[in-house]
Design a protein around this nucleic acid. Structure first.
Length: 667
DNA sequence: GGGGGAAGGACCA
DNA sequence: TTCCTGGTCCTTCCCCC
């Protein structure tokens, strides 16, 4: 099955001694369009010779050793599989294959368009003197892309420029100009738009276009539409592209690579044709299978083609997680996504910089400040606030480390980012670094200043007894929920707030009643410069947290609302239905005439809340004993207890939009 | 044992 | 002399409940 026999190992040893470059697996060794006639061994040897002995090379060797270890572990796991175990895994795999097959959708026609050597082609278009010459866009450190003339020498994207120069001494290196590429990309997108208004652009030079409707509308075959689209792109931009057409996006992408450059390949929406196509397709051609996965699957299970995935399905089930097995078997069946995804929300934003290795701490902190500033600017441009900050470090020996911290406030200012990043960096020093990066994730996408006149008021949103309210000044704030809802902290609402001794804004609520019914949580607004200590909620229960922007105030204020609102003693009508028809818990709309539905709806929420209250009461004894020692989740309390309490509180924070989305789903 | 955060890594363009 | 950047997703480990 794998390469675990003694004979194989001896052969590997001999090869490593005589031709060491053959076992140096770079990313440049897989087949790529325009590189058919390349002397691969020569390229591999030059890359090996130029890399040998460098810190980069040593790190690559370390990584390869890890992969080798992983392969050996998997091989050992395989060896332990009895026939009986294998047979039961085969049963599971067969069931999984049947389930996957049932999802096959042959009703859609997807087209994947890929611009040919895009950046290099744009440069040539703007400077005809470059036409026909070996050209690469990038620097001596790294290439973004290479023209087809350069590829004949083994030069390709993701290769360092100095190696490329050795492979092709006449190589012309052009620095990238993303403004130009964006301009031409926009032109191509206008063409895609004509074929599918919801086309999916995956980068400046690639897009997926659902041509199902246009084929029907124009009574044209997918092949005709593909030709027409390519011509339109050429007319608009003067650039060529290659196109693949298939029943799903995964296959369409594979197909667009087949007749590159300036070609197209059509895979018909036919089960038999797909299986024939898949049967000999190398797994590396499929998106999601990279150098490591290819290596592991080949050496452990002898899998080379997509069809092999099905042959080895029992082993895949035995060795990999359900999710991963699902992915591998989908590839074996030629399945892929056929739906048009909803607009993807950004999950993270980052900024990183490579520099000459240094261990000078003041220099490192200065670079960190620059990175924090860039990230902060980028976040502010998109109105993003995040609460998880990750520091990425690459040591001078190319070892990559990440250190993350999750905050209780949503931040985006340079000062806040730098403050937390510096703490993370300080803990790692002294260290010689060649790269630093900062990534912000766990977003709350508040748009400061955004105000929706239709927004709900906080009072109408959370039911409270505000009888003991104390005015706290002129806060004018609004909350923006990711699901579109907005809560206005109008003057009316703000009158329900009071300040505690730490200048934190609290929603008024009689303490005793609050403890009894566990009604409304504390709302806390951090004033500028205040540290985030966590929220002093009386229940220690789940506290959804939203970022809140205050006019003319700090942008790192925080508002937390306890979702553990018990509503058992309230009048049902005012309790559940805001403005007489909007569910106060999940936002579902049901007019009064839908009496039965409304009853069922409120019964459902009541059941959920009773369940929560029951589990809460079971824990209350424990919580009260914690409170009795006067525990406060802030820095005033020293020792392990304080740290533990703080951590506990932190771990329970969830974004408020997640809570509402869930509620909505529950409905 | 499950959930969630941290850390690391694979992969893509 | 020189081996990127910015993003997503997945897995594993560990802590806490």
């Amino acid at each position: 099955m794998g390469t675990n026999s003694n004979g194989d190992r001896d052969r590997d040893r001999d090869r490593d001694r005589d031709r060491p470059w053959q076992s140096y697996h770079t990313v440049y060794t897989n087949a790529k369009a325009g590189m058919d006639g390349v002397d691969k061994e020569k390229v591999q040897k030059i890359v090996y010779e130029m890399s040998k002995g460098s810190k980069y090379f040593e790190n690559e060797k370390r990584k390869e050793a890890t992969i080798k270890q992983k392969i050996e572990n998997l091989q050992a796991q395989c060896a332990l599989l009895t026939d009986e175990r294998l047979s039961s895994y085969q049963t599971i795999a067969d069931k999984q294959i049947i389930d996957l097959e049932a999802t096959r959708d042959l009703s859609k026609i997807w087209l994947h368009a890929d611009m040919d050597a895009f950046y290099a082609a744009v440069e040539t278009l703007e400077n005809l003197a470059l036409k026909g010459k070996p050209l690469a866009v990038g620097s001596m450190s790294m290439l973004c892309t290479a023209s087809y003339e350069a590829r004949k020498f083994g030069v390709r994207a993701a290769m360092p420029g100095f190696i490329a120069r050795r492979l092709c001494p006449d190589l012309i290196l052009v620095p990238p100009n993303f403004q130009k590429y964006t301009y031409y990309s926009e032109l191509t997108r206008k063409v895609f738009q004509n074929y599918d208004p919801d086309f999916i652009a995956t980068s400046l030079d690639e897009a997926y276009v659902n041509i199902t409707d246009i084929c029907n509308y124009k009574c044209m075959s997918s092949e005709q539409i593909a030709s027409e689209l390519r011509n339109a792109i050429y007319e608009q931009t003067g650039l060529t592209c290659s196109v693949g057409v298939a029943p799903n996006r995964l296959l369409a992408k594979v197909c667009s690579d087949i007749n590159k450059p300036n070609g197209q390949f059509i895979l018909p929406n036919d089960h038999k044709a797909i299986m024939t196509f898949i049967s000999s397709l190398p797994i590396r051609k499929v998106g999601g299978i990279g150098k490591v996965t290819e290596h592991v699957l080949r050496d452990v299970l002898g899998i080379n083609t997509c069809e092999d995935m099905l042959q080895k399905s029992a082993y895949l089930c035995a060795l990999f997680s359900e999710h991963t097995t699902d992915f591998f078997l989908s590839i074996g069946l030629g399945l892929g996504r056929t739906d048009t995804p909803q607009q993807m929300l950004r999950k993270s934003m980052s900024c990183e910089r490579t520099f000459s290795a240094t261990e000078d701490e003041s220099e490192l902190f200065q670079k960190l400040a620059d990175i924090a500033e860039t990230l902060s600017n980028d976040m502010q441009k998109e109105g993003l606030f995040g609460r998880t900050l990750t520091l990425k470090l690459k040591t001078s020996s190319f070892e990559v480390r990440t250190r993350a911290t999750s905050l209780q406030t949503y931040i985006h200012s340079k000062e806040d980012i730098l403050g937390h990043a510096s703490k993370l960096l300080k803990a790692e020093l002294p260290l010689s670094l060649r790269l630093m990066g900062l990534r912000m994730s766990q977003f709350y996408d508040a748009k400061p200043g955004h105000h929706d006149p239709m927004q709900k008021t906080l009072k109408s949103f959370v039911i409270t007894d505000a009888s003991q309210s104390t005015s706290c000044g002129s806060y004018s704030s609004n909350l923006h929920l990711r699901n579109g809802a907005n809560i206005d902290l109008s003057a009316d609402d703000q009158s329900c707030f009071s300040k505690d001794e730490s200048d934190n804004l609290m929603v008024a609520c009689e303490p005793e009643e609050y403890q009894q019914s566990n009604k409304l949580a504390a709302v806390k607004v951090y004033s500028p410069g205040n540290d985030a200590h966590g929220v002093k909620d009386n229940t220690d229960e789940c506290v959804p947290q939203v970022q809140m922007d205050n006019e003319g105030r700090s942008n790192h204020n925080t508002l937390s609302i306890n979702a553990e609102a018990s509503l058992t003693n309230q009048n049902e009508e005012t309790l559940w239905w805001i403005d007489g028809y909007i569910c106060s818990v999940c936002g579902a709309e049901l007019p009064p005439c839908f009496m039965e539905e409304r009853q069922e709806h409120s019964d459902y929420h009541l059941a959920v809340m009773l369940q929560k209250e029951e589990s809460l009461q079971n824990r209350r004894g424990l919580l009260q004993s914690e409170r009795s020692v006067g525990s406060l989740p802030d820095n005033r309390q020293g020792g392990d207890v304080a740290r533990k309490k703080q951590k506990t509180s932190k771990g329970k924070f969830i974004p408020i939009d997640a809570f509402f989305n869930r509620s909505k789903k529950d409905c």
